[in-house]
Design a protein around this nucleic acid. Sequence first.
DNA 1: ATTAGTTCTGGTCAAGGTGACTTTAACTAA
DNA 2: TTAGTTAAAGTCACCTTGACCAGAACTAAT
Lengths: 236, 236
Amino acid sequence: MYTSAANVAERRSAPPSLAISTVIFALRPSEKSGRPTLWIPLVRRIREPYKDLWALPGGPLTHAESLQDAASRNLQETTGLAPSYLEQLYAFGGLHRSPSQRVVSIVYWALVQPTEAALADESENVRWFRADRVGDLAFDHNAIVDYALWRLRNKLAYGSIAYHFLGEYFTLAQVREVYEAVLDRQLDPANFRRQITSTPEIEETGEYLQGGKHRPPRLYRFTGRPGLDPDNRSTP
Amino acid sequence: MYTSAANVAERRSAPPSLAISTVIFALRPSEKSGRPTLWIPLVRRIREPYKDLWALPGGPLTHAESLQDAASRNLQETTGLAPSYLEQLYAFGGLHRSPSQRVVSIVYWALVQPTEAALADESENVRWFRADRVGDLAFDHNAIVDYALWRLRNKLAYGSIAYHFLGEYFTLAQVREVYEAVLDRQLDPANFRRQITSTPEIEETGEYLQGGKHRPPRLYRFTGRPGLDPDNRSTP
DNA sequence: ATTAGTTCTGGTCAAGGTGACTTTAACTAA
DNA sequence: TTAGTTAAAGTCACCTTGACCAGAACTAAT
């Protein structure tokens, strides 16, 4: 039916290939201070181009899954994690992102809770890096990580997203640690408390966290819903 | 080289096709009040699926252009317009967006100035609609328009984007009309003036707009740069 | 048992921004 | 000259925010 020449023409005019990648954020205690810091998992490339460099987890979009499902799946496959928050970041489609072929990457970003992140797969080819100290990455992935970081900081400052780093119950000091880790600056505990407790999505519980060598802090709960992306809108 | 069977398998596992669409906003005077309101151009579909329904301008991504260039091009092709602002909106990739085949659409949104919009092509198959009164559109384009409207309102309230609806020189009342049209509510002129003039990106000129039957308003100029999307970052 | 050390929690205060409103300025049309 | 219009400046009360202070509640050391 098709001649060889027709196949060549077909390949030339074929649409660019589509890939999904994900920037996965988790808080892990710093080696030095023990205070939480931002980490992301990367995978080592085992083939050209950019063989042996680190890259964002990702892969091609298979035919029978939505974009968000694809992101969720390769997040599960590379790290074994289920995200507590998942949102589309951007579609990157520059002409020269990959030297061999034209690739359009639809990138998602995710937050995972530290309890999950602790038991994440780590291997020869999957390793966690501090978000501000990933080295030279494959493709345009440095720019992608930078943009994801910018979006995370933005959403944290405006939206109510910090709680997806934490478990169901948390202290206000833990929330503050999230903000301090992501925004990379100290916040006044008293003022921070005032702001957080004034948002209606935060619910005071009767429980307290015992075990610290100081006054036991009250535990709170988050009662809000994620966001209003097109993907998340129709799931109320 | 390829057998017919191989072609079938190839087509089945082939990536979804990639399309670019654009939501184009412009302010045009309302028929009734004469005050500016939000309009968008739509194109009539001339083939199945959704033949004869109105849809967002768009088309396939050709091999040799970036995503933003593709959006710019089909904006030019369908309306003859050059946008004063162009930003990626979202990548829509649901499984059943198109009944016949799997399509992933990367959607942009644009602002054009009314001087441009006035001489925009309009024909049997291209027509402008009030943004809040597009009827039933093809595909998932109603949801896309809704989301674009939400993003426009959001960006207007926070970012400094209103000026892309206007020419180089403008009065503060014109800026206020943009806000009132997009946000669909009245704003106090005095307070609005105070806010706008306090932003450093707004520059007072020595000129005044003559011709009104009232005190001539001062003309201002916008001196800021668009935004910090990945596509626009590297063009400082 | 007492004290020191820690964080939690509630409070004050001044500065700055916002919404509602008033007043004066500067033009045109009658 | 006057009425009508919008421009532009100013006032006032209210709220949010950052900086700071002090007492409360627990643990660990003396």
